[in-house]
Design a protein around this nucleic acid. Structure first.
Length: 464
RNA sequence: GGCGGCGUAGCCAAGUGGUAAGGCAGCGCUCUGCAAAAGCGCUAUUCAUCGGUUCAAAUCCGGUCGCCGCCUCCA
């Protein structure tokens, strides 16, 4: 498999550090508000990458950080006049609920910054000892002139950074004094109204970037395979992580950096500061299914801007319905018999093509095209399939879904006795040619989310 | 100012040198008591635009137009 490495700005063949295993770190949320669908585009892409690694036979160790101590979380707690933990706990719970609704595979660990303060203190101490950091007015800063690689990930040169940051530094001069305008903070000295922890270099709290260096090191080691996040993380967050980690450990931090492009809404940039964002809850309240949201967010290429619209969400829901109808039909195949070898070979070839498409920089659109081609190939002969054929194709769909995660298990529960009675009543009406009555019952069941289909083999039903 | 991305049918979207995947929507038809599902047929001589290279260009090169991102809040 190959994909685009932000660090080298080219497509690279993936080579894991330890055979068959992948260490994966994904930047998680800052829990000061409800996550929006833009956040979930990134998390769903990360989930897709992880699922494809698993599909390809790798064992994946995946950790995600949760930033529960920073300027924004503190500000929110102070605004609401409640303890910080109360704010963060609420949004952490909301985050996990949405991840579940969107059918993401859980990470091996979700790491909270506040639960890793000692590790961060230790890392800052190490950077001070090695001379990469300096103390100033109770805070500790990283000196980027000590790290000659600084700016490599973001493709920025240090000279232009200096110019760009100078204006900002003037505006922030009352906040912190720094030796060089572009240096970044590792540890913020204690301030009134902020949580703080003791440290050898003075009581205070961690800067934003240090948590990811400290926690990834602890759970994945100083050198691991893949680090992911949204494109906005490239600079400064990931650039700073590299500086901290490589200076402290003296080894390469991460081999592959993968960044997901943003989404916009109705053509406009989406951000919390503009307030034009949808949460998952907003969309569910409008009656859209979480799986339609997932389908839409993963179905276009991760390095391209995605323009989110409700019309697009509707199209995603319809595409999903086509897939679900296909599976529904396969499950109702009734002709006994084994699988046709020619068909089985076509299915196997389709799965190969599906994987090959994803192996080429996660081309989900191409992979979906492969799957829909198979659907279009099978549908015309649906009525001639044997159970053996159907089982093979259903197994194929399971494999496809192991990567895409767009189909939930157990869509068809057992029918309520009352609903079954209604269906029987309608069948009786139909036999008696009382179609008005039959249609009335069908309409009533539709209101309950039950769709009836009259087929030559008898009535079938499904949930909407 | 520096760095980078995008522009393919009504909509969404693959395709990065060999003659335009796929999904949605639409129209006609088949099946059906009617629906639903499914199927069949139709829907881009053309890939923002101009020029160049090539036997061959949506794909490579150059210009132009338009949109967007990053350059210490952001997934």
């Amino acid at each position: 498999m190959r994909f685009y490495n932000t660090l080298t700005r080219r497509l690279e063949e993936f080579r894991e550090i330890e055979k068959g295993r992948v260490g994966l770190y994904t930047c998680g949320p800052t829990v000061y508000d409800f996550p929006h669908i833009g956040n979930f585009r990134s998390y769903l892409f990360e989930d897709l990458v992880k699922r494809f690694l698993l599909f390809s036979g790798y064992r994946v160790r995946h950790v995600m950080n949760i930033t529960d101590i920073d300027d924004k979380t503190i500000r929110k707690a102070n605004e609401l006049k409640v303890p910080l933990a109360e704010v963060t706990q609420k949004y952490i719970a909301a985050f996990h609920a949405d991840l579940r609704a969107l059918n993401t595979l859980p990470a091996d660990a979700y790491l909270r910054a506040t639960e890793h303060i000692p590790e961060m203190v230790h890392l800052v101490s190490a950077l001070l000892e090695k001379g990469y950091a300096y103390r100033k007015d109770g805070s500790v800063y990283f000196s980027i002139e000590r790290f000659k690689e600084y700016g490599r990930l973001a493709n920025l040169d240090r000279a232009s950074l200096k110019t760009g940051a100078a204006a900002n530094a003037a505006a922030d001069a009352d906040e912190y004094e720094k030796e060089a305008a572009q240096d970044f903070v590792l540890w913020k000295g204690k301030k009134p109204g902020e949580p703080s922890w003791p440290a050898p270099f003075g009581e205070g709290r961690p800067g934003w970037h240090i948590e990811c260096s400290a926690m990834s090191m602890k759970y994945l080691g100083p050198h691991f395979d893949i680090h992911m996040g949204g494109v906005d993380n490239i600079f400064p967050h990931h650039e700073n992580e590299i500086a901290q980690s490589e200076c402290a450990n003296g080894v390469t931090f991460v081999n592959y950096w993968l960044h997901c492009q943003h989404l916009i809404v109705d053509g406009m940039k989406m951000s919390k500061s503009l307030g034009n964002f949808y949460t998952l809850g907003d969309l569910l309240a409008k009656g859209y299914a979480p799986m339609a949201v997932r389908y839409l967010l993963i179905s276009s290429h991760y390095r391209k801007l995605l323009n989110f619209t409700l019309e697009g969400l509707e199209m995603a829901a319809q595409a999903l319905a086509r897939i679900k109808n296909f599976i529904f039909s396969l499950k109702h195949v009734e002709i006994e018999g084994g699988a046709d070898p020619e068909l089985a070979a076509a299915v196997a070839a389709s799965l190969d093509a599906f994987g090959a498409s994803l192996a080429d920089d996660f081309n989900v659109s191409g992979a979906l095209g492969v799957m829909f081609d198979l659907i279009a190939d099978v549908n015309p002969r649906m009525n001639a399939l044997t159970r053996g054929d159907a089982a093979g194709i259903l197994a194929y769909m399971d494999r496809v879904n192991a990567v895409l995660g767009i189909l939930e298990p157990g869509d068809e529960g057992p029918l309520d006795a009352e609903i079954e009675a209604r269906i029987a009543l309608r069948e009786k009406a139909r036999r008696e040619k009382d179609f008005a009555r039959a249609d009335e019952i069908r309409a009533e069941l539709k209101k309950q989310g039950i769709i009836l289909m009259d087929t030559p083999a008898g009535v079938r039903w499904k949930k909407e």
